[in-house]
């Protein structure tokens, strides 16, 4: 159902090494967010990446292939697990340094440029095989997606505060904690 890669070469090594580095960084950092916000934000990074790939990497647009084959292979699946820790790290820095206002706009730009650099490296390692797409096209996508990601985080943070406050003031909140 999900084929293995044709050869275990540069693209698979790229995915494995970056995945190890990213998840190590996430687990080494002290816990910063409530578990529910972490879970939702991790899933959201994956959903955004997957939705973008559904739209532009499959026919009729079919602007790039991921890893060795046009089929949905095991490393395509593993690659999608690489996005959540990067999203989490971006969020961690944003929250730790209380970046707001113009700083936030600059931060989104820096994150987008870093994501662009990462995508360029991935393309060099043939993780992405472009068929009409180029790395630069991704810049507006990253700018939009990272801004949306941070906005959703702010919304969830606000909702969590309300939930916690309701729970504390009512004695037994929505789940009777």
């Amino acid at each position: 159902m999900m084929p293995l890669p044709e050869k275990f070469d540069a693209n698979e090594w790229f995915i494995v090494l970056f995945m190890a580095a990213a998840y190590t960084a996430v687990f080494l950092l002290p816990r910063r967010f409530p578990a529910v916000i972490t879970a939702v934000m991790l899933l959201l990074s994956d959903v955004i990446a997957k939705a973008a790939d559904f739209i532009i990497a499959t026919p009729p647009y079919d602007l790039y292939d991921i890893t060795d084959t046009p089929k949905f292979d095991l490393f395509d699946f593993i690659l999608w697990l690489l996005y959540p820790p990067f999203g989490y790290l971006a969020l961690y820095i944003y929250d730790k340094f209380h970046i707001r206002g113009t700083g936030a706009a600059l931060y989104v730009l820096i994150c987008s440029l870093l994501a662009l650099g990462f995508e360029w490296l991935a393309a060099q390692a043939h993780v992405f095989n472009y068929k009409g797409w180029t790395t630069v096209y991704s810049l507006p996508v990253y700018l939009f997606v990272i801004s949306l990601y941070l906005l959703i985080y702010r919304l969830l943070q606000q909702r969590f505060r309300i939930l916690k406050h309701t729970d504390a003031s009512a004695g037994a909140g929505p789940y009777g904690s």
């Binding site: 879970a39 939702v40 959201l44 959903v47 997957k50 559904f54 089929k71 949905f72």
Partner: peptide, 24 residues
Amino acid sequence: FESMFCWMGVVLLFGDYMLILITN
């Protein structure tokens, strides 16, 4: 949080299921 998590869970699971049916 629950609505979002369920929604996104379906996007991921159903997306993989459709991809396997379509491409593989």
